Each structure stands twice: as C-alpha cells, then as structure tokens.
Measured scan of single mutants.
Amino acid sequence: KELVLVLYDYQEKSPREVTVKKGDILTLLNSTNKDAWKVEVDDRQGFIPAAYLKKL
C-alpha cells in the first residue's frame, strides 16, 4: 500500500472529506484525480486536496 505525508492541516468541508493534521502519515487509496486524493484516516475514507499531500 502507498503512504502519503500530510503537509498542512486540513479541515473537512464536506462529508466526503476527512480532517488531517500536518505530519500525519496516511494510507493512499486513490490518486487518479489530480485535485483530490482519497485516503484512509482512522477507519474513515475520504478526500483531501492533493496539494496537501506528498507521496512517500
């Protein structure tokens, strides 16, 4: 599985998104959309803007 590093805090703005903190390391589920990547956070799945993430 692929991991990503969170570069900036992000507060979810819709039910399809998830809230993350800078420095979190998350499982990347889908990065086919260049604008928003799907990740898993504490058994929740949701989207975060790709600009907030860096592949490890």
Results as ranks from 00 to 15, higher is better:
residue 6 V to I: 03
residue 36 A to K: 12
residue 13 K to R: 13
residue 5 L to W: 06
residue 22 K to M: 08
residue 54 K to G: 04
residue 52 Y to C: 14
residue 24 D to H: 06
residue 23 G to S: 02
residue 54 K to T: 09
residue 48 I to L: 12
residue 6 V to W: 03
residue 4 V to S: 01
residue 6 V to C: 06
residue 56 L to R: 02
residue 11 Q to M: 12
residue 41 V to L: 11
residue 1 K to H: 12
residue 56 L to M: 09
residue 25 I to F: 04
residue 42 D to I: 08
residue 25 I to C: 06
residue 21 K to F: 10
residue 42 D to Q: 11
residue 18 V to C: 08
residue 32 T to G: 10
residue 26 L to I: 13
residue 31 S to R: 07
residue 46 G to A: 12
residue 2 E to V: 14
residue 12 E to K: 15
residue 38 K to G: 04
residue 18 V to F: 15
residue 15 P to N: 10
residue 37 W to L: 01
residue 56 L to Q: 05
residue 54 K to A: 10
residue 29 L to T: 04
residue 26 L to Q: 00
residue 48 I to H: 02
residue 56 L to K: 02
residue 24 D to V: 06
residue 5 L to Y: 09
residue 10 Y to Q: 01
residue 49 P to E: 04
residue 49 P to N: 05
residue 28 L to R: 00
residue 36 A to Y: 15
residue 24 D to W: 15
residue 43 D to F: 10
residue 38 K to Y: 15
residue 29 L to D: 00
residue 39 V to N: 00
residue 53 L to W: 02
residue 23 G to N: 05
residue 2 E to M: 14
residue 22 K to D: 01
residue 44 R to T: 06
residue 51 A to I: 14
residue 16 R to M: 14
residue 34 K to Y: 11
residue 18 V to I: 15
residue 44 R to C: 07
residue 37 W to N: 01
residue 24 D to M: 15
residue 17 E to F: 08
residue 23 G to I: 02
residue 51 A to W: 14
residue 13 K to W: 07
residue 50 A to N: 04
residue 45 Q to R: 09
residue 39 V to Q: 01
residue 31 S to P: 04
residue 32 T to N: 13
residue 30 N to S: 14
residue 34 K to N: 12
residue 2 E to K: 11
residue 53 L to M: 05
residue 44 R to M: 07
residue 7 L to D: 01
residue 11 Q to Y: 15
residue 44 R to F: 09
residue 26 L to F: 04
residue 13 K to L: 10
residue 22 K to E: 06
residue 41 V to P: 02
residue 26 L to G: 05
residue 31 S to F: 06
residue 4 V to M: 01
residue 25 I to Y: 04
residue 3 L to V: 07
residue 46 G to C: 14
residue 13 K to D: 06
residue 40 E to R: 11
residue 42 D to H: 12
residue 27 T to L: 14
residue 16 R to P: 06
residue 4 V to W: 04
residue 49 P to G: 04
residue 14 S to F: 09
residue 54 K to I: 12
residue 38 K to Q: 14
residue 45 Q to Y: 08
residue 44 R to Q: 06
residue 12 E to A: 15
residue 25 I to T: 04
residue 37 W to C: 05
residue 18 V to Q: 03
residue 2 E to W: 13
residue 7 L to H: 00
residue 16 R to G: 15
residue 8 Y to D: 10
residue 52 Y to N: 07
residue 45 Q to I: 14
residue 10 Y to L: 02
residue 14 S to T: 12
residue 35 D to N: 13
residue 35 D to E: 12
residue 25 I to D: 00
residue 47 F to A: 03
residue 41 V to R: 09
residue 52 Y to L: 10
residue 51 A to Y: 13
residue 41 V to G: 06
residue 42 D to N: 14
residue 23 G to V: 02
residue 3 L to W: 14
residue 50 A to D: 02
residue 53 L to I: 04
residue 15 P to K: 09
residue 10 Y to I: 02
residue 27 T to N: 08
residue 22 K to W: 04
residue 26 L to M: 03
residue 15 P to T: 09
residue 13 K to E: 07
residue 24 D to L: 09
residue 43 D to K: 11
residue 34 K to F: 10
residue 25 I to L: 06
residue 8 Y to V: 10
residue 27 T to V: 15
residue 39 V to G: 00
residue 55 K to D: 02
residue 49 P to L: 07
residue 55 K to W: 07
residue 30 N to Q: 09
residue 24 D to P: 00
residue 49 P to W: 08
residue 54 K to C: 15
residue 21 K to E: 04
residue 48 I to G: 02
residue 56 L to F: 08
residue 13 K to S: 10
residue 34 K to S: 13
residue 47 F to G: 02
residue 28 L to K: 01
residue 47 F to T: 08
residue 53 L to G: 03
residue 16 R to D: 15
residue 55 K to L: 13
residue 2 E to S: 12
residue 35 D to G: 11
residue 3 L to G: 02
residue 19 T to K: 06
residue 1 K to E: 08
residue 31 S to G: 10
residue 50 A to E: 04
residue 8 Y to K: 13
residue 22 K to C: 07
residue 26 L to V: 13
residue 33 N to S: 11
residue 35 D to S: 11
residue 19 T to D: 03
residue 19 T to N: 06
residue 13 K to M: 11
residue 4 V to A: 07
residue 20 V to G: 03
residue 14 S to D: 12
residue 22 K to Q: 10
residue 35 D to V: 11
residue 1 K to G: 09
residue 39 V to Y: 02
residue 51 A to H: 13
residue 20 V to A: 13
residue 53 L to F: 03
residue 50 A to P: 11
residue 54 K to S: 09
residue 20 V to H: 03
residue 42 D to T: 07
residue 13 K to C: 10
residue 33 N to L: 09
residue 9 D to V: 04
residue 10 Y to E: 00
residue 10 Y to K: 00
residue 4 V to E: 01
residue 2 E to T: 13
residue 18 V to E: 01
residue 29 L to R: 03
residue 35 D to M: 13
residue 33 N to C: 13
residue 49 P to T: 04
residue 45 Q to P: 06
residue 34 K to M: 13
residue 48 I to Y: 01
residue 5 L to N: 00
residue 23 G to A: 01
residue 49 P to R: 05
residue 19 T to S: 14
residue 49 P to M: 05
residue 44 R to K: 11
residue 55 K to H: 07
residue 16 R to K: 12
residue 15 P to C: 09
residue 41 V to Q: 07
residue 26 L to E: 00
residue 42 D to M: 11
residue 16 R to C: 15
residue 44 R to S: 05
residue 4 V to Q: 00
residue 26 L to C: 13
residue 38 K to M: 15
residue 25 I to K: 04
residue 54 K to Y: 11
residue 33 N to P: 05
residue 29 L to S: 02
residue 14 S to Y: 10
residue 39 V to W: 02
residue 3 L to D: 02
residue 31 S to Y: 08
residue 50 A to L: 05
residue 17 E to C: 09
residue 27 T to G: 06
residue 47 F to I: 06
residue 3 L to Y: 15
residue 48 I to W: 02
residue 33 N to W: 09
residue 40 E to L: 14
residue 7 L to M: 09
residue 16 R to H: 14
residue 22 K to I: 04
residue 6 V to S: 01
residue 52 Y to T: 04
residue 42 D to E: 12
residue 43 D to Y: 09
residue 50 A to C: 10
residue 11 Q to P: 04
residue 32 T to F: 10
residue 34 K to Q: 12
residue 9 D to T: 05
residue 41 V to C: 09
residue 30 N to C: 14
residue 52 Y to M: 08
residue 32 T to C: 14
residue 37 W to K: 00
residue 29 L to C: 05
residue 19 T to C: 06
residue 17 E to R: 06
residue 20 V to S: 03
residue 55 K to I: 13
residue 23 G to D: 04
residue 8 Y to E: 12
residue 56 L to S: 02
residue 10 Y to V: 02
residue 51 A to K: 15
residue 13 K to H: 08
